[in-house]
Design a protein around this nucleic acid. Sequence first.
DNA 1: ATAGAAAGCGGACCATAGTCCGTTTAGTAT
DNA 2: ATACTAAACGGACTATGGTCCGCTTTCTAT
Lengths: 201, 201
Amino acid sequence: MSSIPIRPDVPLGAPHERSDAARNRERLLNAARDLVAELGAEALTMDALACKAKVGKGTVFRRFGSRAGLMMTLLSDSESEFQHGFMFGPPPLGPGAAPKDRLVAFGEGRIYFVLENGELLKAAGAATRNRFDVPATKLSHRHMEVLLREAGIADPWVMAMSLTYALDPERIVDDVRVRGISPTRLADSWRELVTRLLGAV
Amino acid sequence: MSSIPIRPDVPLGAPHERSDAARNRERLLNAARDLVAELGAEALTMDALACKAKVGKGTVFRRFGSRAGLMMTLLSDSESEFQHGFMFGPPPLGPGAAPKDRLVAFGEGRIYFVLENGELLKAAGAATRNRFDVPATKLSHRHMEVLLREAGIADPWVMAMSLTYALDPERIVDDVRVRGISPTRLADSWRELVTRLLGAV
DNA sequence: ATAGAAAGCGGACCATAGTCCGTTTAGTAT
DNA sequence: ATACTAAACGGACTATGGTCCGCTTTCTAT
């Protein structure tokens, strides 16, 4: 997988995306959304996508780089929304509340977000070398790191990584769907974890 | 993947393993160990293994069920040793110490165990639906659950799951080998986590 | 309008995990 | 020894993610 031209935010002298490229991007995105709606994210194969979009397989991979890349693209809308929530939204999720409360809210939000987009998230994480490469994961990690630092944790970077993995999509989805744990129970346990971790009951 | 006849612990009227089966098992195990030693676990392919062991591919899969199953078999010795350590060994890892200290020791032990057998563990976990299916993982989870319950955690089962994922092999290996975090730093952070989680500094 | 270059295209091709099923073979009962 | 049966075997076959590279299209400069 070389550089991923997924659709850069037109950073510099935007090389002016070619019209055929734009057309195929549209086709692919539509086909992908259809397939996910029809059969679920897990069942989406790159061959089927290429076929349904009436496009060559090479085109699919140039556009998205990999299956994980495709899933990330499909996720980007809801993901942005969630990100906006914890970065700019109202407390306790957004700025203005105590780190502990923000972290509790973050975990809860994340749990429900994962449960809504679970398949996509699992698919985005799998097949990637280190799941930490997912940009959204990096951002979440950074967010938690800042909160943990404010709360006086000695090594916020590493602790944020522990919490990141505790909120792993695969873990959350399987807990709920395979092992029958209710989302509420997960959220409660997360609250207990954060509360104890950041002192004071 | 149907029932896995990996080499049952001869549970009942052991149907007397056939001699050709035994011979091939030996061949496969030896070949697998050689290949791992030579090229690393990641580079081991089932085709190469079958070929090197002078055995058909079907035989490989009958024996181990899957690539993950093979890796688990390869791990079982060192894994048993580690398990023995936290179940029957001397404190603080084994019984006799306070839950908090046992949990700290468990995490440290796990970190170093993972760093020694990282490739195998990653390979065993990947390709499995839920990595939690790995029997050794279930045992570790149970162990932590018991300790957490003793320490008064409200929902030990779920909390143990959070900690299980915080100690995920992929996470540990990538932290150390990709992101350059020292094992010591990981262990220190784990200590901080457990110490704060189980009260009293 | 035209030509040249760069970007994009597409599908054959590769690698690899895992399945299937007709054939072989090791034990067993006679 | 012989015949029988269930287990074991092996390798062709499938599914799927991902790569490669010669061909086509779009854009731009003239």
